[in-house]
């Protein structure tokens, strides 16, 4: 029984890590804002548009049944938040809360300031899952965007997590300027 359990855990860990390694990116439209290239393994969620900010969220649910329960667990989450200067703090906060939902004991490395990446660590807890996790947040002040990312440390090294975040941020291709897109979103009204 113990051997079976160890084999199950090892295969789950291998599966998670291999999912990260074999990642190719696909182009995901961010409504009228533009698009980003996101790892194919991450599924889209319905965007959230509020007055003056928008959140585009992506996530990966671990495949193993050992993590299933009353809460949908995430092994990886990514959020692209668009904001105006007046909603910047709220958007960044909501982006962080979304990716770090379920991450307990989050602590941050020394703040580099500016648009540098903030790197935090904590323990992701959901159902039976308790996994050390990276949480990363990066602002793009010029474009009015915040990129936030969470990945289990078992699946990604610090460098790999940073690389993923930087690739997503670097792939952003704008369509309308952020302020103009948010004005359209406001005109639409409510959450769509």
């Amino acid at each position: 029984m113990r051997i079976l359990l160890i084999a199950l855990l090892a295969s789950t860990a291998w599966y998670g890590a291999s999912r990260m390694r074999g990642a190719s990116a696909t182009r995901r439209a961010l409504r009228e804002l533009g698009h980003v290239a996101v790892p194919r393994r991450l599924a889209d969620r319905e965007p959230e548009e509020r007055d003056g900010l928008a959140l585009f969220a992506f996530g990966r649910v671990p495949g193993s049944p050992q993590y299933m329960g009353s809460t949908t667990p995430y092994a990886e989450r990514l959020v692209v938040a668009a904001w105006t200067p007046t909603t910047r703090a709220e958007a960044a906060d909501r982006a962080l809360r979304t990716v770090a939902l379920g991450v307990e004991g989050l602590t941050w490395e020394a703040d580099a300031g500016g648009d540098a990446v903030a790197v935090g660590t904590g323990t992701y807890e959901a159902n039976m899952a308790r996994r050390p996790a990276w949480v990363l947040v990066r602002d793009d002040s010029a474009r009015g965007l915040t990129f936030a990312y969470m990945a289990w440390r078992r699946d990604a090294s610090r460098e790999a997590a940073l690389r993923t975040l930087e690739r997503v941020a670097g792939s952003f291709a704008p369509a309308l300027p952020t302020a103009e897109y948010l004005a359209l979103a406001r005109a639409r009204g409510g959450v769509r």
Binding site: A29, R31, E32, L33, G34, A175, L176
Partner: peptide, 8 residues
């Protein structure tokens, strides 16, 4: 803008 303005 075609994709974002029209198709979307």
């Amino acid at each position: 803008l075609l994709e974002y303005s029209a198709c979307h």
